[in-house]
Design a protein around this nucleic acid. Structure first.
Length: 741
DNA sequence: GCAAGGTC
C-alpha cells in the first residue's frame, strides 16, 4: 500500500519524514522545483498497516485567482463589473512543477495524507493539494481516501501521534478562506481601478502624483493607513491644557527626596492653591507608611512574529519588513526556527535545555548560556497566544556571528538573547515606598534596589536600574518639608505613530496576519500614502511648556515626544484580540526607567494623498467606513460564521459584495462631484504652508483655527470641498490627560 | 498595472 503525504512547506515535510521514517530519510530532488523535495520511507499506520510513504510539500497556496482575459485590461470593462465577473482559478507557471509532482506521486497512492498547517489557510491549501492529487488519481475521490494530520508542533511524539490519528479536512474552514480570497480580489480590484482611473486623474490635474501612480484600496492597507491618519490629526488638533501640581522635597541624611502628589495634577488652579495653602497651614508632614517589599521585573515572553517586528523597529533600527526578510534568511540557513508564528508558549514537552546548551559554544552570550546549563535554567513563561502550528521563534543551532551579515547578526543576536532571557529567572528587586500626609493631602516617594539582575544580564533591551536610595523614614515621623511649591505645566500632544505602535494596532484589530503585517506597512509607503522618518522631530505646539527646573517634572508635561508616560507598560496581557490599543511592552513593573533605546524608531506621517483618501471616504457618510478597522473585523466574523456552519460561502460573498458595491456606487457619484472642487496649493517650495482659505469652504477650516500654520509633509495641499475635518473625532489630547486621575 | 494570503 502506498500513501502520499503532502505538507505546506518543505521544512515540515522533512521533519515529519524524519520522525516517521525513523532517522535521516534521504531527499529526492523534484524536477523544476527548488524548494520541494520528496522523501520515501516506510511507516506502519494503525488503519492501513505497513505502507510505502512518499512525503512531499507545496510552497503555500498552489492556486491563483484572477479575472478572465477580457477583464484584465483596466479599460476593458467598468470596474464595477468586477463585483460579479467570473473568476478563474489556475496554477501559476512557477507552481506547475509542484502540481505535476503531486499528480505523479498520487498515481499509485491508496491514500492522500495532508500535512498542511492547522489553521484556516492550511485547510484551504489542503483542498488545493487534494485537487491536484485527484487529477493524478481519481480513485482518491472515494470516501475516506483523503485525510489530514492534526498537529501543532514538530516534536517526535506529537508527530507520531498525529500520523496515527488522522482526521478529515475541514471543508467549512476551507470555504471561509475561499470567500476571503474572492472578496479581497473583487473589492480590491474594483476599488483600486476606480481610484486609479477616475480619482487619480483628478488629483493629477491639480498637480499631485504622476501618471503611473496606482491608488489602491485593500481591506488591510486602508485601515493601516487609517491608523496613521487618525494619529496625525490627534497630534495636529491637540490643544494643550494647563495643569498644576504640588511638589514636596525633603532633605534628610544629605539625600533629597521628591514626593509626588497623590492627586498627580489638577486642571483647576484655584483648587490647587487652596489645597496647597492647607498644606502650608499644617506646617509639618507626617509619615503614614513605610514599606519595603520584594518586587520583580518579569522576563520577556517567548518570541512571536509581531513581537519580533516591534522589537526590530525599537531596538535594531530595522523596519518591520526588513526584519522579516532577515529572519527569513536566518531560518533558511537553519539558524532559527520558523519566523512566522503567533505562539508565545513553548510546548511543555519540548526540551529546551539542549537548545540552550548549543548557545554555550560562543558569542557574547556563551557564558550566560553556560550559567543556565549549570542550573540557572527556568521554564519560560506562557503567553496567551497559540496558533497551534508553530513554536515561538528560537535559535535552533549555534552559528558564529562572524559568519553572518551585519543585519543578520543583529536579528540573530536578538533572537538568541530573547530565548536565553525566556529561560532565565525574573529580575529581583526591593521596592521601598514612603507615604506622607501633609495637610489634607497625601504624597508618595519610592525607591528601587535591584538585587538580582538575572535575565537582564543577557537581555540589554530591557532596562531596570536602582534609583537613588531613600533615606531612613519611620512611620509617624513628623518633619517640616524643606521645600513645597506649586508647579505649573501643560499637557503635550501625543507623538506621531511609530512602527511598533502601528504593528500593535494592526495586531489588536486583526489587520493582516503575522506574515503580512509588515508588507501592508511597506505597501502604504510604496504607494506614497505615508512617509516614514526617524522619530525625534516634533511638531511645535504654541506655548509648549517651559519647565522651570529639572526636578522630576510630571511626565505629561516634560516630554516633547512622549506625553503618554503613564500609559506605558500596560503589558501584552490584553484581553484577547480586540482591544483598540497597542501595548508597548510586557513588564509588570513600570516604575523604573523604561526601555530607552527608542531613538532610531521610525514614525509615520500621512501624505496629503493619504489624508485625502481617508478623509474622503470617512466623510462620505456611508453606513460603512472603508478606512475603519472594524470592516476587516466584520469580514473576520463572517468567516467565522462559515467555519461554524452558520452561513454558507455563497451567502457571505453575496452579502459583502452587495454592501461594497453600494459604497462603490455612492463614492462614484461623489467622485463626479469632486471634479468641480476648488483646490488651492500654496507655496509648494517650502514645507511651511500658510492656510488662508485653502478649502474653498471656510467652514472646513474650523478645527485648524488654532494652528494657522500647518506643516505639510510633501509640500502639497489638497482639499476636498466636502471634506470636513471633524474636531470631535480627533481632539483627544485633553481627554487623555484627564485620564491620569 | 489591482487584493491578501501562503511560501522561497
Amino acid at each position: 500500500m502506498k500513501v502520499l503525504c503532502v505538507a505546506e512547506k518543505n521544512s515540515i515535510a522533512k521533519a515529519v519524514a524524519n520522525h516517521l521514517g525513523g532517522g535521516n530519510v534521504p531527499a529526492r530532488d523534484v524536477q523544476g522545483c527548488r524548494f520541494v523535495k520528496n522523501y520515501d520511507f516506510e511507516f506502519n499506520f494503525p488503519l492501513w498497516g505497513n505502507c510505502q510513504v512518499t512525503m512531499t510539500a507545496v510552497t503555500g497556496h498552489l492556486h491563483s485567482n484572477d479575472f478572465p482575459g477580457n477583464y484584465r485590461g483596466w479599460r476593458n470593462c467598468d470596474p464595477v463589473d468586477l463585483f460579479d465577473a467570473p473568476i478563474e482559478q489556475y496554477v501559476s507557471d512557477d507552481k506547475k512543477a509542484i502540481e505535476r509532482n503531486i499528480e505523479r506521486q498520487a498515481k499509485y497512492a491508496s491514500y492522500l495524507f495532508i500535512w498542511t498547517d492547522c489553521d484556516r489557510e492550511g485547510e484551504h491549501i489542503g483542498t488545493e493539494i487534494r485537487k491536484a492529487a485527484w487529477q493524478g488519481n481519481a480513485r482518491l475521490k472515494e470516501p475516506g481516501k483523503v485525510v489530514r494530520a492534526r498537529f501543532s508542533n514538530i516534536e517526535r511524539t506529537h508527530i507520531l501521534n498525529a500520523a496515527r490519528n488522522p482526521v478529515m479536512l475541514d471543508e467549512a474552514q476551507a470555504d471561509a478562506v475561499a470567500s476571503r480570497i474572492e472578496l479581497d480580489l473583487r473589492i480590491g480590484a474594483s476599488f483600486t481601478r476606480n481610484l486609479s482611473l477616475f480619482a487619480q486623474p483628478i488629483l493629477r490635474e491639480r498637480g499631485f502624483g504622476d501618471e503611473k501612480q496606482i491608488v489602491s484600496y485593500g481591506s488591510c492597507q486602508f485601515p493601516t493607513l487609517g491608523f496613521v491618519v487618525e494619529r496625525y490629526f490627534r497630534v495636529r488638533n491637540f490643544v494643550p491644557e494647563d495643569f498644576w501640581t504640588i511638589r514636596i522635597m525633603h532633605e534628610k541624611d544629605n539625600i533629597r527626596t521628591n514626593f509626588i502628589w497623590a492627586r498627580r495634577h489638577l486642571f483647576d488652579r484655584m483648587s490647587v492653591v487652596i489645597l496647597f495653602e492647607r498644606c502650608l497651614v499644617a506646617r509639618t508632614a507626617r509619615v503614614t507608611k513605610v514599606q519595603t517589599k520584594p518586587t520583580s521585573k518579569w522576563k520577556p515572553l517567548p518570541l512571536t512574529t509581531v513581537e519580533l517586528q516591534k522589537c526590530g523597529s525599537r531596538f535594531l533600527r530595522l523596519s518591520s519588513d526588513r526584519v522579516m526578510q532577515v529572519a527569513e534568511q536566518l531560518y533558511q540557513k537553519g539558524w532559527i526556527s520558523y519566523p512566522r508564528t503567533e505562539t508565545d508558549q513553548f510546548d511543555k514537552v519540548m526540551n529546551l535545555q539542549p537548545l540552550v546548551q548549543k548557545q554555550t559554544q560562543g558569542g557574547p552570550w556563551a557564558a550566560f548560556a553556560q550559567g543556565l546549563v549549570n542550573g540557572g535554567f527556568s521554564q519560560p513563561r506562557n503567553g496567551r497566544n497559540n496558533d497551534k502550528a508553530h513554536p515561538p521563534i528560537h535559535p535552533v543551532n549555534f552559528v558564529n556571528p562572524s559568519a553572518l551579515t551585519n543585519e543578520e547578526q543583529r536579528v540573530h543576536e536578538f533572537v538568541v538573547r530573547r530565548f536565553l532571557a525566556c529561560c532565565s529567572e525574573d529580575a529581583k528587586g526591593s521596592k521601598t515606598e514612603v507615604s506622607i500626609a501633609y495637610g489634607s493631602e497625601a504624597f508618595n516617594a519610592s525607591g528601587l534596589m535591584v538585587l538580582e539582575r538575572n535575565y537582564l544580564d543577557v537581555y540589554p533591551y530591557d532596562k531596570w536600574t536602582s534609583s537613588q536610595q531613600l533615606p531612613e523614614f519611620t512611620e509617624s515621623e513628623v518633619f517640616e518639608p524643606a521645600e513645597a511649591k506649586i508647579h505649573g505645566g501643560q499637557t503635550s500632544p501625543p507623538s506621531y505613530l511609530t512602527e511598533p505602535e502601528l504593528i500593535g494596532l494592526m495586531d489588536a484589530n486583526g489587520i493582516g496576519t503575522d506574515a503580512t503585517m509588515a508588507e501592508h506597512i511597506a505597501k502604504i509607503k510604496e504607494r506614497s500614502y505615508v512617509v516614514a522618518r526617524p522619530r525625534g522631530r516634533q511638531p511645535r505646539q504654541e506655548g509648549e511648556e517651559g519647565s522651570d527646573d529639572g526636578a522630576s517634572p510630571e511626565r505629561a508635561s516634560n516630554s516633547g515626544r512622549g506625553g503618554r508616560g503613564r500609559g506605558r507598560g500596560r503589558g501584552r496581557g490584553r484581553g484577547g484580540r480586540g482591544a483598540a490599543n497597542a501595548s508597548s511592552n510586557n513588564n509588570n513593573n513600570n516604575n523604573a526607567s523604561s526601555s530607552g533605546a527608542t531613538s532610531g524608531v521610525q514614525e509615520f506621517i500621512p501624505t496629503t494623498l493619504g489624508m485625502a483618501l481617508i478623509e474622503g471616504y470617512d466623510n462620505m457618510g456611508f453606513e460603512i467606513s472603508l478606512a475603519k478597522p472594524f470592516l476587516r473585523k466584520e469580514m473576520e466574523l463572517r468567516m467565522k460564521a462559515i467555519c461554524e456552519g452558520k452561513k454558507t460561502k455563497q451567502e457571505v460573498v453575496q452579502e459583502s459584495i452587495d454592501q461594497y458595491r453600494s459604497v462603490y456606487l455612492q463614492s462614484q457619484r461623489r467622485l463626479d462631484a469632486l471634479r468641480n472642487v476648488s483646490c488651492v496649493c500654496l507655496d509648494r517650495s517650502s514645507e511651511m504652508l500658510t492656510c488662508e482659505r485653502p478649502f474653498g469652504n471656510t467652514s472646513s477650516l474650523k478645527s485648524f483655527q488654532r494652528h494657522d500654520s500647518l506643516i505639510w509633509p510633501n509640500n502639497i495641499l489638497l482639499a476636498f470641498q466636502n471634506c470636513k475635518i471633524n474636531t470631535k473625532n480627533y481632539c483627544m489630547g485633553s481627554t487623555q490627560s484627564r485620564n491620569h486621575h
